[in-house]
Each structure stands twice: as structure tokens, then as C-alpha cells.
Simulated scan of single mutants.
Amino acid sequence: MRTRDEKKVKAIRDAVIELSQADGFTNLTTAKVAKKAGVSPATIYWYYTDKTDLLSRLYEAVKNELHSGLTAEIKKSGTDLTAQLIAMLTFTIIQAKKFPKESHFVSALWTNQELLDEQARKFGEQETASLLILYKKIQADSDFIDAPQAVLSAFCSVPSLLLQTVDDANEEEINQTIQLVVKTLKK
């Protein structure tokens, strides 16, 4: 049986992210991905059944990578809910700055959910455990507005969106955006 070649999987992943950003998802073909990744088209089909499966599995993997370490950052901030919220927002910004293409890839697919299969859509609706806990704490705390998880999630995505839309956002603008999100969520 053929074993999984992680170098090829990474090359495919990187090619998909780069090509989708340069050409969009509509123009993304397995032939282009294979050429960019330096693999045969058959190799792509060894790992993924079709374009939807390819985008869906990569969306899940990249989203997991971007959230890796989030729980530790929230815990490091202590027990103050505002400090935890700021730690989460700051972590998200750091990840988006460190992995801009990956961050954009996840956001772009989330806003084009028709490209994802049902499993990936459900995966996207589920936040990591630490985010869910944080959102539940915010919802239960009388110092914060009473808002559904989807609204909290949308507001918390604003700092990352700033980085995706403003190429040269500086630290002051990023910090102002974080503070604006916090002020918006607090009563």
C-alpha cells in the first residue's frame, strides 16, 4: 500500500494556497496545482477525491494550524475575561501576520462556503474548544453584551480582516482595532 508522502501533501497545500490567492478559486484546477506543486495530477487524486475535497480538507487543516497555541495564550492571560479576550485577539493577529496567505485562504473559503463540503462547513461552524469556552464566558458575564456566538465570532474576526484589507496596518491601528472590538463587546 502506498504511504502518505508529507512533502508532497505540503507541496500541494502550498500550491493551492498560492494559486487560489493569485487566480481565485474558480480558476484553480488540479492540473495547475499539480504543476505548481511538482507532482502528477494522479498524486492529487491519491490524497483528495476532487477539488471540493481538496479545498475542504485543506481548509480544516489550515484552520487547525492557525488556532494551534490559542488555548495556551488564553490561559497565560489569567482569569480576567477582558484580558483573555485581548489575548485571543492578539494571538489571532499574530497568526494572521505570521501566516498571511493561510489566514486569507481560510477567510476566503469561509466566505465562499459553496466550495466546501458539508463536513468542512460543520468544521468551520465549530470553534476550537478554547474559543467556545471564551465565548460562553462572555455570553454569561454581565459586563459584556448579550450576543450569540456567531456575532461574537464575527466581531472577533475584525482585527484579522484589517490585516487582510490594509497592507500596511501598523501596531497602533491594530491595537486600536482590538480595543474597539473589546469596547463594542462590553456594556
Rank of each mutant, 00 (worst) to 15 (best):
L55Q: 05
A42G: 02
A129Y: 11
D80W: 01
L162W: 05
A37P: 02
I174A: 12
D53F: 00
E65A: 11
Y59K: 03
V62N: 03
E172N: 15
K8Q: 12
K76T: 12
V39L: 06
L81W: 00
I145F: 08
V166P: 05
K136Y: 12
F105Q: 08
S157L: 15
L131V: 11
G24L: 00
I133R: 03
S40H: 14
V151K: 07
T128V: 04
V16D: 08
N27S: 13
E102A: 09
A37S: 02
F25I: 11
G38E: 07
S157E: 15
I12L: 00
K186D: 05
E125P: 06
K101H: 07
A169S: 07
A169V: 03
S103D: 06
S160I: 14
G78D: 04
A15S: 02
L132M: 14
I174M: 12
E18N: 08
L66H: 02
T184I: 01
W110K: 10
V39G: 06
W46D: 10
N175R: 06
S153Q: 10
I44D: 10
L161C: 03
E18C: 06
I44H: 01
T111G: 11
A22R: 04
S77C: 09
K137I: 10
V16N: 07
D5Q: 08
D146E: 13
V151D: 11
A169L: 00
L28Y: 02
T92R: 13
R57L: 06
L132D: 15
V33H: 04
R13N: 09
T49Q: 15
A11P: 02
D143I: 08
G24H: 02
E114S: 14
Q95I: 11
W110V: 12
V33S: 10
I86C: 05
L161P: 07
T82P: 04
T29H: 01
Y48S: 00
S20Y: 05
E60N: 13
L180G: 13
S160F: 12
Q126W: 04
D143Q: 15
S103W: 01
K101C: 03
E18T: 12
S40V: 08
F99Q: 06
Q164N: 07
F144P: 05
M88D: 03
A61Q: 15
E60F: 06
L131C: 15
P159W: 05
A61M: 11
T3H: 15
V166R: 04
N112G: 02
D146Q: 12
V166N: 13
K51H: 12
E125F: 10
A22V: 01
G78T: 08
E18G: 08
